[in-house]
Simulated scan of single mutants.
Amino acid sequence: MPRIVLEDLTDPQHVGFLRDYTHLKDVQLRARREPAEGLFLAEGVEVIRRALAAGHVPRSFLLSRARYSDLVNVLPEDATVFVAPVEAFAELTGVDLHRGAIASMQRPPVRSVASLLASLPPGPSRLVVLEDIVDHTNIGAIFRSVAAFGVDGVVVSPRCADPLYRRSVRVSMGTVLHLPWARAGSWPGDLTLLREAGFTVAALALSDDSVDLGSFAAPDRLALLLGTEGDGLSRRAVSGADVVVRIPMDPRVDSLNVAAASAVALWETRRA
Rank of each mutant, 00 (worst) to 15 (best):
V72T: 12
S125E: 03
E77T: 13
L92P: 15
A84N: 05
A90Q: 15
G100W: 10
A114F: 04
G100A: 03
S119R: 01
A103M: 09
F82K: 01
G123I: 04
F82Y: 14
A114H: 10
T80A: 07
N73V: 06
P85V: 02
P76D: 02
A84K: 05
V81T: 14
A84R: 06
V110K: 12
M105T: 10
V113W: 09
R107M: 09
L97H: 08
E91K: 08
R99G: 15
V74L: 08
Q106E: 13
L92R: 07
Q106V: 14
L120K: 09
A118C: 07
E87M: 05
I102C: 10
A118H: 10
V72R: 15
S115P: 04
M105R: 06
S115H: 08
V74P: 10
P122H: 10
V74Y: 00
V113M: 06
P76H: 01
T80K: 13
V83G: 02
I102T: 10
S112D: 12
P85E: 05
V83Y: 06
A101T: 04
V81H: 04
P109N: 04
R111I: 09
A90W: 11
E77S: 15
D78E: 14
V113P: 13
T93F: 13
S119I: 00
H98E: 06
P122A: 11
D96M: 03
A101D: 00
L116P: 14
A114S: 15
V83D: 04
R107V: 09
S104G: 11
S104Q: 02
L97M: 09
F89T: 05
L75N: 06
V72D: 12
G94V: 03
D78A: 13
S115N: 08
M105P: 14
P121W: 01
P124L: 04
V72L: 11
F82T: 01
T80W: 07
A90M: 08
N73Y: 01
H98C: 06
P122L: 01
L117F: 00
L117E: 00
L92W: 12
L92G: 08
R99M: 12
A118L: 04
A101K: 02
Q106C: 07
P121N: 03
F89G: 05
V113C: 10
T93S: 13
N73D: 14
S104D: 02
D96N: 11
E91I: 00
V110Q: 15
L116T: 08
L97Q: 03
N73L: 07
V86G: 03
V83I: 15
P85G: 02
T93L: 03
Q106A: 14
N73P: 00
H98W: 07
F82E: 01
V86A: 10
L92Y: 11
V74C: 08
F89Y: 10
L75A: 03
P108K: 01
L92I: 09
H98V: 13
P85A: 00
L117M: 03
N73K: 13
P122N: 09
F89W: 08
S119W: 04
I102N: 02
P124S: 07
V83M: 10
G123H: 09
